[in-house]
Design a protein around this nucleic acid. Sequence first.
DNA 1: CAGAAATGCGAGCGATCTCTCGTGTTTGTC
DNA 2: GACAAACACGAGAGATCGCTCGCATTTCTG
Lengths: 233, 233
Amino acid sequence: MPEKTEKPAPETGEATAAEAATTGEAATTGEDRPRRRQARGERRIAQLLEAAARVFATTGYTAASTNAIAREAGVSPGTLYQFFPNKEAIAIELGSRLMHEMRQSYDEVLTPITSDTTPLEEVIAGTVDRFIEFNCRHPAFFVLMHGPDIPGRIAEEHDALHATLVARVETILAPFAPDAPQAAVTRTAQMCVGIYKAGLELILAHEGDEREAYVQELKGALVRYLEPLMGTS
Amino acid sequence: MPEKTEKPAPETGEATAAEAATTGEAATTGEDRPRRRQARGERRIAQLLEAAARVFATTGYTAASTNAIAREAGVSPGTLYQFFPNKEAIAIELGSRLMHEMRQSYDEVLTPITSDTTPLEEVIAGTVDRFIEFNCRHPAFFVLMHGPDIPGRIAEEHDALHATLVARVETILAPFAPDAPQAAVTRTAQMCVGIYKAGLELILAHEGDEREAYVQELKGALVRYLEPLMGTS
DNA sequence: CAGAAATGCGAGCGATCTCTCGTGTTTGTC
DNA sequence: GACAAACACGAGAGATCGCTCGCATTTCTG
């Protein structure tokens, strides 16, 4: 009875492909390995990713051993490597899923705002609240995205996310500063993301009322930083 | 002829103790090991620390192997361990020396300002310029202080530095907000340091004119963040 | 039910890294 | 010159980690 502790794992059960990452081939026949029997496997993948998120969040990427992830998930190392070709693929898949989830609650807030002429203060407050809430619920996301010990592939994913983030902020900022050169807008957006990251670090390091106070402090910092753009729209 | 490539190493040649870090004992007879012959040894220590700074700056702490540091310094692994009990001690000593050097050029600017009633804008500009210049000259400092893959001891050193930094900023800010609660001043100081770190990261990632533009952007961000304190002094 | 494929285990291989040890060399002291 | 201590070397011991392999078990298909 190898199935030792079959947790319920009440996950959503999305059909995200977790394999076929290393070789990168198999483009001739679409999918040369149809991969049947995904019920149990999909459950194990979710289980392993949850365990990986916990281990990554507490020890960082490099210090997290694959054996520790397997142990945290309650499976053997061999089982882990049945679903992921290597350690990097675990982080990639986890980061990918988190990014996907974030992009959802992200577009949810940003889309109705960009076209409208909402006051900048509300845009800032809403965006910050959403992002803070997401990062508090998924501490592994911060580690994977802002951790400096990550190998090449994840760094690329992070750069991609960062680029889209800056681009989004740029489009939000652009109408407020129509006569500013493009480079200046980029710098401002980059600073905004940087200030947000700095505030997020402080927020994650505190609890309760103190955390809330830092949220307000971050909002104030962003509002005042963008103050010169306020009166021109 | 074991002395392969005896570099000139035109260092200052300060008398900083680099050993006696792990055990922590030997407090009975002051120094139980007088350690003669410091001419060549002191040179090797400086040589090894320079090499470590280069390796740390390029690969980070955990990814930096002691063999790589020894190779970069042009000595054998055994020689490295003649002067440092372990890898952590190298980072500690390097961080300690950098912190000492920074504290010099730091007090140099801050001391004559705190007692005076210099406008806040100048305080910010002067401090930022000094810190930026220091961090550009010693990229390893940023890696050691803000790297998340560092073991316990260096993290303590970093926390100590961070605490003194925040305390200093608090004392600078306090006269500008005499009727604010202590906790609020602390939060503001913490945010200042965070914003500075975020700006520093952007500045280090750019060159030439773009770098200068980000320096201005950082100064502006700090000035506007502290704007509410301007008129009360 | 029979065969195949997916899933599961865990010992252990190979690579890497930190740190040691035995030995040889340089330098200071008398 | 003689002795000792500091300095230097480099092979490798010891430990860890990513990952594999052979084999057992479960589940799907027909």
